[in-house]
Amino acid sequence: MTIAIEVKSIDKQFVLRRSRSIKEVFVWLIKGRKGELSEKFHALKGVDLEVQQGETVALLGFNGSGKSTLLKHISGVMIPDSGTVRTRGRVAGLIEVGAGFHHDLSGRDNVYLNGAILGMTEEQINERFQSIVDFAEIGQFIDTEVKFYSSGMYLRLAFSVAVHTDPEVFLVDEILAVGDEPFQKKCIAKIQELASDGKTLVVVSHDLDLVSRICDRGVLLDHGEVRFDGPIHEAVAKMRGQ
């Protein structure tokens, strides 16, 4: 089989700035700045992951486990401190609501902007524009500046653009929790359609019932390390402490 995503021994640390009172800062200074006003958070620790083309994978874990950080490395939003990440084919998806949108531009302009960021040509966007608008269900607002959009409208347009790029790898980070129930169902149906078409899917979600429905494999992370990688029902059971 063809490897769609290959993650090898990636590490990622963040510097966390700690709030201090004026008194604490003063003491820190007169002591010759001994001690730290910040600390390092080890978000990912030597993570290895291979995803085959056509697999549907859920990244699971409690808050702070590293799942969203790992997804951002796969998307290319973040670069690891060490290790490598490789993907095959067009990668698209929703990491954050409205990511890639410019608040002062209209929905129409943002379709072209976001589509270009995700790798579509102007000709491709022209061909798919009406389908994007129809799926997003925001026709009357398409020429309104997106700074006036609700989070649900952001979601609908961003999701619609992403799925119309015809990606080989589709990434979703907890984004389906936003929006009304009918649109969530529409998104899930589209994701299932992508999976049926042999696209690779990686999802981050706390909705264990949802990932059980749309994913075949679960990767459970804990404090930046992979604790389990196997069938989704086993991963969900471990998350639930069963």
Rank of each mutant, 00 (worst) to 15 (best):
K67E: 12
S68I: 06
T69S: 14
L71A: 10
L71T: 06
K72S: 13
K72Y: 07
I74F: 01
S75N: 07
G76E: 10
V77T: 15
M78H: 14
P80T: 01
T84Y: 01
T84H: 10
R86S: 14
T87E: 06
R90D: 07
V91W: 10
G93I: 09
I95D: 11
E96L: 08
V97P: 14
F101E: 09
H103Q: 14
H103F: 10
L105H: 09
G107K: 03
N110Q: 09
Y112W: 12
A116K: 04
T121V: 07
T121P: 05
E122K: 15
E123R: 13
I125W: 07
E127Q: 15
E127K: 13
R128F: 04
S131W: 01
I132K: 12
I132N: 11
D134L: 01
A136F: 12
A136G: 13
A136Y: 13
I138P: 08
G139P: 02
F141R: 04
T144G: 02
F148E: 13
F148R: 15
F148I: 00
F148T: 14
Y149T: 11
S151Y: 07
M153E: 08
R156T: 05
L157R: 09
L157V: 00
A158D: 10
A158S: 15
F159Q: 05
F159Y: 03
V161A: 00
A162E: 03
A162D: 01
A162H: 08
V163R: 03
H164V: 07
H164T: 05
D166G: 01
P167C: 09
